[in-house]
Design a protein around this nucleic acid. Structure first.
Lengths: 181, 181
DNA sequence: AGTAACATGTAACGCGTTACATGATTTG
DNA sequence: CAAATCATGTAACGCGTTACATGTTACT
């Protein structure tokens, strides 16, 4: 279970609640990892059951209690071991590419709208979590910095390619609109 | 089930056996979709059960029979409908980025080896399926051409970034090797 | 002699996604 | 007044991965 591993990893940087971990996933890891509450909460419960993390209830004014998790020594050891045993994979699953591949079966304006949607999403990412200032970057570990740059490079390339190819693609699709239904 | 959808898609370009579809996935779709036999064969069986494809046994000399599938009219309609209902998502799941993020918990040479592994894999892709000649490209639909370029742009950017950042990363990791165990 | 390629399938397991369930406070 | 945010969890379903099962031909 990868979610368990990543939870352990972020907890190695400091104690956090499940909700906070989710937020962190949405910012720092957004460009290479996604997990919902339905994965995170059970993962934390399992880690606690295995003795890799401990939970502490933190009461809050007018809010439900937070369950704040901390990694144990056994947890840190386990995390390092698992890291050493992890193979470097990098997998992409893209419905966007699928849609583009079969663009000739779609109304042209639909295909172009999909393209614009993706460009907008990528620009959001670049302006948001991937767009930190130089000052913020000074506080990062070499690895975190590497990941940040990697995200920028890859997402930036996707965006640039789509913008560059939009006009030629539009022309080609409108040239022979084989399937406007 | 996405595998079903993609199988239907490739069959819309012509009849093929499950084995051939797998080969096609490994070449044309490698950079944005992965599926094994364990997904493809059941997917084809399900599509046949729904009447979206028909199967035909092709005897072969000294080999087991091929089951060659063809898409039906209902199948083509269904495919177009499903395409129209598909949202453009683009998801990355990367153990490589995870490893880099926590590189400070790894022996530096291990982190760099992972990086080299990925560069080699990406170069293989660029030289292989993504590296067609201009003559081959003329035969592609606009969408196929777009995907090919997209793959080149994104994979190329990942490769270039890793090569560019290798030396600075190595220096930073060796500067304070916090966890050579 | 051994490995890779050709060829099809089943079954179990793991894991993630989605929907459901609940409830207070803050912001627009 | 509605929507978003904070906050935690369960359960079912879907789907993919992996391992198992079998057998021939061609190449090294």
């Amino acid at each position: 279970m990868d979610t368990k591993l990543l939870c352990l990893g972020v907890l190695s940087e400091g104690e956090r609640s499940g909700y906070e971990i989710k937020k962190l996933f949405e910012t720092r890891f957004r460009h290479f990892f996604v997990a919902g509450f339905g994965s995170i909460y059970p993962a934390l419960a399992a880690l606690a059951g295995e003795g890799y993390v401990t939970a502490r209830a933190v009461p809050q004014a007018g809010r439900p209690d937070k369950r704040v998790y901390s990694v144990t020594e056994a947890g840190l050891d386990h995390f390092r071991e698992r890291l050493l045993a992890t193979a470097p994979r990098h997998k992409v699953r893209s419905e966007f590419c699928l849609l583009m591949y079969f663009a000739h079966l779609l109304p042209p304006e639909r295909a172009l709208a999909h393209l614009d949607t993706m460009v907008a999403r990528w620009e959001e990412m670049l302006a948001g979590d991937l767009g930190l200032s130089a000052a913020d970057e000074a506080a990062l570990t070499p690895g975190q910095l590497f990941d940040l740059g990697f995200g920028r490079a890859v997402v930036g390339a996707a965006r640039a390619y789509c913008l560059e190819r939009r006009a030629p693609l539009a022309a080609a699709l409108l040239d022979r609109p084989r399937a406007a239904e």
